[in-house]
């Protein structure tokens, strides 16, 4: 197997770190389903199958400066960006200490001002114009940053997708639009959502750079997002990227995907699962050894156990707090 990460400037340890975050995300996600099925948390919205592109993308951005607007399947992205497992678990248990919304929003509705992570809602793609506004504001202030936003392929049919892309294109703003194309918008497959071959084909209509890449490969994701970020910093405007992968779980814990797709189709997709294929790549190059893997799995399990334990015991927000923060509160 050919080493592909050295050419991107990554050391062996870098890619091992990358893999570890992917694996951590997967194990966390699997734990959420267990917690849901055992009645501990009411709802799961999952990102399984999308970790590779999410983590690769995060590595291509500046964690000290850039603004990000991740969507609800982006556990891999937010973990790589700096949210802790404990915080992610507090979010899923909807506890007061959850930095995303203190239990006000459903899980996966990420928000963390300290990390320059915008808050987002459930009507999809509303975050795209916000990301454009961040880029416009940064340009007005002369700040050299990139504004990064993700969304699904179903969402790419929304008016806000179009309006945001067009605005960013016209004003040549430093925005990276990353479409996470997992081939399903709840039950409706890709061919009933889009009639063009790639979501990124739409870039041309907005006068921006477009590129589709293998979303199961974190290195491909890194390369694409890095290219888009470099373009943005050079003043060449926005990019529309598309990660291609497959949603390995039902839409949410309330969905039954066997009503609209087959087990054979899901099993076939699992062969291309980025967590598995990237592990295989690292094993081939002898970077991921059996010992390291074991050590990694044990550490991750312990951290998830600790996070779960902490979040489960943590208090909910006080009931009277429902009236707080409707408007600015002044002493």
């Amino acid at each position: 197997m050919q080493n592909r990460h050295h050419a991107l400037g990554f050391s062996d340890q870098d890619v091992l770190n990358m893999y570890e975050i992917m694996l951590e995300t997967r194990r966390f996600d699997e734990r959420l389903w267990l917690l849901n099925r055992s009645g501990k948390i009411p709802f799961v919205v999952s990102g399984q199958g999308q970790e590779a592109a999410q983590v690769g993308a995060a590595f291509a951005l500046n964690k000290e400066k850039d603004y990000v607007a991740p969507y609800y399947r982006d556990y891999g992205f937010v973990l790589a960006w700096g949210m802790t497992l404990r915080e992610m678990m507090l979010n899923n248990f909807a506890k007061a200490e959850d930095p995303n919304s203190a239990g006000r929003q459903m899980p996966g509705h990420f928000s963390y001002r300290k990390l320059r992570m915008l808050t987002h809602s459930s009507p999809v793609t509303t975050q795209n114009p916000h990301a454009v506004g961040v880029a416009l504001a940064a340009k007005l202030k002369g700040d050299d940053i990139v504004s990064f936003v993700t969304f699904g392929e179903g969402s790419s049919n929304q008016g806000d997708f179009h309006e945001a892309c067009n605005f960013a294109g016209v004003h040549k703003l430093p925005v990276i639009f990353l479409c996470e194309n997992n081939h399903y918008a709840i039950s409706v497959g890709l061919k009933h959502q889009l009639s063009c071959e790639h979501v990124s084909d739409r870039a041309k209509g907005y006068g921006m750079f477009g590129k589709t890449f293998d979303g199961n490969d974190p290195l491909a994701a890194y390369a694409a997002v890095k290219e888009a970020a470099d373009r943005a910093h050079r003043g060449e405007g926005p990019s529309l990227l598309e990660a291609n992968f497959y949603r390995l779980t039902p839409h949410t814990s309330d969905d039954n995907d066997m009503t609209y797709r087959t087990k054979a189709e899901v099993d076939e997709a699992k062969k291309h699962d980025g967590v598995l294929t990237f592990a295989a790549y690292l094993r081939e190059l002898n970077i991921l050894t059996a010992d390291k893997e074991k050590e990694m799995e044990e550490r991750i399990k312990k951290e998830i156990d600790d996070a779960t334990d902490y979040a489960e015991k943590a208090p909910f927000a006080d009931q009277d707090s429902v009236l707080r923060y409707v408007y600015e509160e002044r002493d």
Binding site: Y67, L118, P129, H130, A131, V132, G133, V134, S147, A164
Partner: peptide, 9 residues
């Protein structure tokens, strides 16, 4: 929407 983003900035 862009106004909201700029305001959040």
């Amino acid at each position: 929407g862009v106004g909201i983003g700029a305001a959040m900035y």
